[in-house]
Design a protein around this nucleic acid. Structure first.
Lengths: 162, 162
DNA sequence: GCTTTAGGTTCTAATTTGGAACTAAGGAGG
DNA sequence: CCTCCTTAGTTCCAAATTAGAACCTAAAGC
């Protein structure tokens, strides 16, 4: 199976990865969440080739994750900003950062810390159930077929992870 | 810059992506969280080539995300199970699923739903601050240089996203 | 004019991936 | 005891993707 076909699968994770599951794309988004907006700034920060970067940015714009905004005429210059859809990806970045800080930090610890403006503390983000508000981990959750896939069968929970 | 060098960078997100930022790896993990453990099952579910799958699983084992467990002798047969470190990646998968369900669902909605055992509801997971417990989004958070990088400078918040 | 800046595009060589076939080590059926 | 089946891989080649470097455009500054 070609990677270009993955986006057509009936799995929202597979489709999501067809948009952002690229080697460099999540690093582009990391920088976008740190405030980077210009082509040259992404390129300098990431060390990605200009060709790849142009391609990645174009795809993210096509998928509505970034917007290409003209910030100057004569000569025309553009910057890339997160859309609302893009801002919704913060959770993915936050979880990657949280896992990396815990399991992959080098000597001296992580180079960036994230502060919760509301309470003023350096925070690690956790998962919370939107229905009851409790914090959850993998072991508190169960997956099952949804909607039409469940019709006509007894809904049964998938097996436990690990 | 070669992708193989990304893991040496002083950024925990970059290092994390050097482990799981591969085209197929997050789909392998999605299946692992749904209970898949065997080589043939991953291969059938993903449509990845056997060669790639063997390589991906080997790398995940090397990085301590999966464990290769012998479940039968004569002939020796192995299965792959999430380690604690691997289970900690649930947040990444959950956020990808949440984003995909919201922004990429096809006709008929997402094929899998996730149930919070604690309250019994189909839940979408949100981010919560581990210090104050409030749910947060990107706009509630600020990033700044941490630890040694911050020493000798006035700590200043990075710019707002978007 | 000459250089610099910003945002790209083009080219080639190296690396990675897909696809399909093959191996190994038993087990089942006849 | 011969052949097919299962599981978990490995090997090989062609095709696709990527890295690295050079080049292009258009205006501004000196």
């Amino acid at each position: 199976m070609r990677w270009s076909d993955v986006g057509t699968l009936d799995c929202t994770i597979a489709r999501t990865l067809s948009v952002i599951g690229d080697r460099w794309t999540l690093l582009v988004l990391r920088d976008a969440f740190l405030g980077t907006r210009r082509f040259e700034a992404f390129q300098a920060s990431l060390g990605i080739t200009r060709h790849r970067l142009a391609d990645r940015l174009r795809k993210l714009v096509q998928h509505g994750v970034l917007r290409r905004v003209r910030y100057q005429d004569a000569p025309a210059r553009f910057e890339y900003r997160l859309t609302e859809k893009g801002i919704d990806l913060y959770g993915v970045i936050a979880m990657l950062a949280g896992w990396g800080d815990k399991h992959m930090a080098g000597r001296g610890g992580p180079p960036v810390e994230r502060v919760h403006r509301g309470c003023g503390h350096v925070a690690t983000l956790q998962l919370a159930c939107d229905r009851c508000g409790d914090t959850v981990t993998a072991r508190d959750m169960t997956a099952r077929p949804a909607g039409r896939l469940r019709t006509g069968r007894r809904a049964r929970a998938a097996e436990e992870p690990a």
